[in-house]
Design a protein around this nucleic acid. Sequence first.
DNA 1: GTGGTCTAGACCACA
DNA 2: GTGGTCTAGACCACT
Lengths: 131, 131, 131, 131
Amino acid sequence: MLVIDKFSRKPIYEQIVEGIERDIVMGILREREQLPSIRELSALLGVNPNTIQKAFQELDRNGIIISGQGRGCFVADHAAQRVREKLSARISEIESIAAELARAGIEEEKLLDAVRRAYHGKNNDERKEIL
Amino acid sequence: MLVIDKFSRKPIYEQIVEGIERDIVMGILREREQLPSIRELSALLGVNPNTIQKAFQELDRNGIIISGQGRGCFVADHAAQRVREKLSARISEIESIAAELARAGIEEEKLLDAVRRAYHGKNNDERKEIL
Amino acid sequence: MLVIDKFSRKPIYEQIVEGIERDIVMGILREREQLPSIRELSALLGVNPNTIQKAFQELDRNGIIISGQGRGCFVADHAAQRVREKLSARISEIESIAAELARAGIEEEKLLDAVRRAYHGKNNDERKEIL
Amino acid sequence: MLVIDKFSRKPIYEQIVEGIERDIVMGILREREQLPSIRELSALLGVNPNTIQKAFQELDRNGIIISGQGRGCFVADHAAQRVREKLSARISEIESIAAELARAGIEEEKLLDAVRRAYHGKNNDERKEIL
DNA sequence: GTGGTCTAGACCACA
DNA sequence: GTGGTCTAGACCACT
């Protein structure tokens, strides 16, 4: 859980943000639960504390965690809900890629299949039967 | 044709690459046709020549244009085809975003609708994200 | 009386200070009355004793409580009066915020309304900013 | 214009954010105008580039400036408007202070006067006749 | 112990 | 040249 790839083009702090959001949305991290401290995570991931701090700051800013001096960081109330909203915004990303492909003459069915594969493919995790 | 937005998040050279690819795939630029020179484009778009240069390099590297030294740049044979192949690769991008949203519990129908909107909706303006 | 919110942005010791001041000014705590001991309060609020200690120090420093060693803490004479003076100082805080908003072109009436709402409105819950 | 106080309790980066916002709302910085580069400001203010960067990042995040690699930072379209909205949010700050003072028995008229002073006092800058 | 800010200095991608 | 990320290491306020 929460592995980061130091050589990815995606900034480390973003990987951390997304990793934590993923843990929240999947229920691995529960609301009001305390997160590992910045220094702890820093040691754990082999990443500079400032980098973790930046990730936490971003999460805090978005109301996904609450952090306070001397107290530590906690998953905020309704965090999962907020993450879901944030993810919903990515739908427009799909729409804009699709529009680009549409213009280039790629068949619509191919894209629809890609989406269906993502939802029904073998790669779906065990959460399906939970919901 | 080929407007660039200096205030977009997207790197300028990338906007140029995509703009030219779009023109090729839509038949506005035809195979073996000569492209404007770097200096011309630079003046036309109000963009640093180095930036145009970088875009052309990228297109050359992908076999979409041929840029011999001194003789100017030409649309490569089968360029449209190659662009289409390149774009097809973006389907997997959609699939991976879809997988992420699936994991977060976003409904499949929302994504399918986004794709359909892109194909059948009016006003498919790719520059939406530019702000 | 005196609930603290561990998830608030406001430091816990500050919440305690303000809570006690509020109780004094509202007559819930009377002058010369003894306050609960640090250990008691600590247990009661689920808060680190050092934090209570810090809050009491602050109150002592401002002459609002008297904390002799070992004998416990007592509400000081004229405590309510001092709290009121301290609060009056916050009027200048309002003035400086108002000046800032004035400079930005916010309408005066909006601020006057905010004040009137605070005095005449229902449901004046200070803990609004807590999230 | 844009002086910072290194010894203030308010973080330097916040002072910079507010200073720039103030300049925007007062029309000193106009929309689409380029800001000084991070390194320039850094030298100018005697502050570490990272600190400036943090301030700019915050402004960017709020859509008040737009910054892009290699391009520099620019005041965003509708920046002044956004700043004004952000400031409007501070009215609730006034309301919550007012509520606190109301509870303590401070007279309403004192607060109203404070607001009026801010709007009609001698401290008002020259922008009054401009609007 | 915790998180938050700041500095110094490096490296990268973009124009 | 520009902004963006990361590291190392310091100091502060809060628990």
